[in-house]
Design a protein around this nucleic acid. Sequence first.
DNA 1: AAATAAATTTAGTTATGCCTAAATATTAAT
DNA 2: ATTAATATTTAGGCATAACTAAATTTATTT
Lengths: 218, 218
Amino acid sequence: MSSQAEENYLKTIFKLSGKQRKSVSTNAIADELQTKASSVSDMLKKLAEKNLVNYIKYQGVTLTKPGVSIAIHIVRKHRLWEVFLVNSLHFKWDEVHEIAEQLEHIKSPELVARLDVFLNHPNYDPHGDPIPNEKGEFPITSAVPLNQLKVHSKGKVVAVDLDEPSFLNYLDKLNVSIGTLIEIIELNDFDNSIDILINSTKRHISTDVAKNILISLL
Amino acid sequence: MSSQAEENYLKTIFKLSGKQRKSVSTNAIADELQTKASSVSDMLKKLAEKNLVNYIKYQGVTLTKPGVSIAIHIVRKHRLWEVFLVNSLHFKWDEVHEIAEQLEHIKSPELVARLDVFLNHPNYDPHGDPIPNEKGEFPITSAVPLNQLKVHSKGKVVAVDLDEPSFLNYLDKLNVSIGTLIEIIELNDFDNSIDILINSTKRHISTDVAKNILISLL
DNA sequence: AAATAAATTTAGTTATGCCTAAATATTAAT
DNA sequence: ATTAATATTTAGGCATAACTAAATTTATTT
């Protein structure tokens, strides 16, 4: 049985290693978890002991098969709970992350299964992030970050890549939500900012914002 | 902020001290929490430090005002989650206690408030136990343990006082649930067992069972 | 009232998960 | 290829919350 701390480390390593499952550095983990590198070292040793990570001193970590499995199931729980919080309890999409961080650690496979049924087997959470199924398989998504699109291309917002309330609130102000249609009007080479059209309103956004908005091209 | 361990102690002291708020012994707490008396001593000292209990060495503990308040809010969360698990996720009443033990520690007043609305402000949980409101006030209930009734009295089951799956399963087998009509046919002085009528079927139950079934007289 | 039994507390350990400061590896710069 | 800078680990502590064993207090017998 994994503790909450262990689960958070596994989840973080999963997130930072990306689809390519590349090795993650101690400092990157410490940064993400707002803790010290020395604490991370301690934990990595423990997780390696439990065969949940492959850890080579000074060379970073990767998750093992069982490590990946646990991480994905935490992600599944997190996202299912977010759907519940938004769809059933009518929280706003910027209010649910913190609460889901707690709920994701509740241990009961039966609960997850029933929650999934109750919510009608959702494939995406309120931020458009894919929800893995019981087997750990993700629904396929072909989305591109908004900052990688060419001028004049049109697309639909399918997801956002950041959970921070400040970011989500900013999107609300821009009238951007999941499903919103966006057209690229102009790319500004100087600062890589972008001019876009949202519901026939012209907006100007930074790359930092654009790279966290995922688009499905039309 | 209280830790989960602290919350469990407060909840246990609240439960064991009863409506009269009488002093609770170290061993009684250790027994209930399946831990050692020495561990309880340690924790009581800590809770006293935090002003959550009145603790006199060798003389037991009582909860302070803030201690009672925390305990009641844990009970509120526990019971609201049980309603959710049974009414929304269709768990059986004997399956929800363990999961609610975890959910009760989720920290978010907003979540509790919205859950309460979602469930339609329930006054009783699936076991018939009263759910305190946000202010900590319990709905008034006039229920008597089945083993205290006189011969020939009739009443309705309004609650059960034990959450153990084995007990609840036994009640299922007897066809006893919240709302069931019961008539006392005979009291047996020898072992204090009771003959009762449930849906025109005669049943024989022990005092240990009877005292955990709460009746509202007709 | 003294002696025994029972309940409770204290002292000393342990595991988890974090910390700071110091030591050691790795990477980058000259 | 040294040296300097950065990253990472080790060593030594701390708080929480549990434990065992020993000491102490309270309750019960005789």
